[in-house]
């Protein structure tokens, strides 16, 4: 946490993260989304509180309020408003939030190895792809099977999201960076698997929509 800066305007030390506690001038926005919202770095987020905070900050930071203020504050309000919108979009979505925390912790969320998908799921993925292929070639008999698979994968997604929620709580309960990193590594695995399944369901939906169109 680096809120301990001096105010750019009046020089008050420990000025505060948004406005200087002494002269009330707008400070340079902190780039970290959690700090920006004044929230602890936790994966479980109180969405109602987040939304309230978003509305209140939107008003306080809006560039229209700074048209008669210094150039510095005009610039800060633009920057802060932009960070605010990004931060809100990311933090209110559990998946994007987790990806953000992973990225900030130095995890490469793009890097993946084939081992990440468990073999028992791979079999089903392969079967589903076979069915998709047959449907593309005009074999309607696979439709019930496809529908069945789709449901199964949607169930898996629901299961994964519940598991993710537990992993979030486990992360938040850890003491110390190392313990937290270990949980983050587990979360990354879940996210990779989730993305895989999600892509697959999207593909089925795309094909079925195109057929029905």
């Amino acid at each position: 946490m680096d809120n301990h800066h001096n105010c750019w305007h009046c020089g008050t030390p420990d000025a505060g993260s948004i406005f200087c506690r002494y002269c009330n001038s707008l400070q340079a926005p902190v780039p970290n989304y959690f700090e920006f919202f004044g929230m602890p770095l936790k994966l479980s987020v109180d969405l109602a509180r987040l939304q309230k905070q978003f509305y209140s900050l939107s008003g306080l930071l809006h560039p229209d309020r700074y048209t008669r203020r210094s150039e510095q504050e005009k610039r800060y309000s633009l920057e802060a408003s932009s960070i605010l919108n990004d931060a809100y979009r990311v933090l209110r979505d559990p998946i994007q939030r987790a990806e953000y925390v992973l990225k900030e912790a130095g995890f490469d969320i793009g890097e993946q190895r084939s081992k990440d998908v468990p073999p028992e799921l791979l079999e089903e993925v392969f079967e589903l792809n076979m069915a998709l292929d047959e449907l593309r070639m005009g074999d309607d008999e696979v439709l019930p099977q496809l529908d069945e698979s789709r449901k199964k994968f949607l169930d898996i997604l629901v299961e994964m999201d519940a598991g993710l929620e537990q992993q979030f709580q486990k992360h938040d309960a850890q003491e110390g960076d190392e313990a937290r990193r270990a949980v983050l590594a587990e979360i990354r695995l879940t996210l990779n698997r989730r993305r895989y399944i999600k892509n697959l369901v999207n593909e089925v939906d795309k094909l079925l929509t195109a057929r029905n169109a």
Binding site: G110, Q112, L122, V125, Y196
Partner: peptide, 13 residues
């Protein structure tokens, strides 16, 4: 051998 790459969704048997 059945392997997959989550990144691109490729599956190979």
């Amino acid at each position: 051998g059945l392997v997959g790459a989550p990144e691109c969704g490729d599956v190979m048997k």
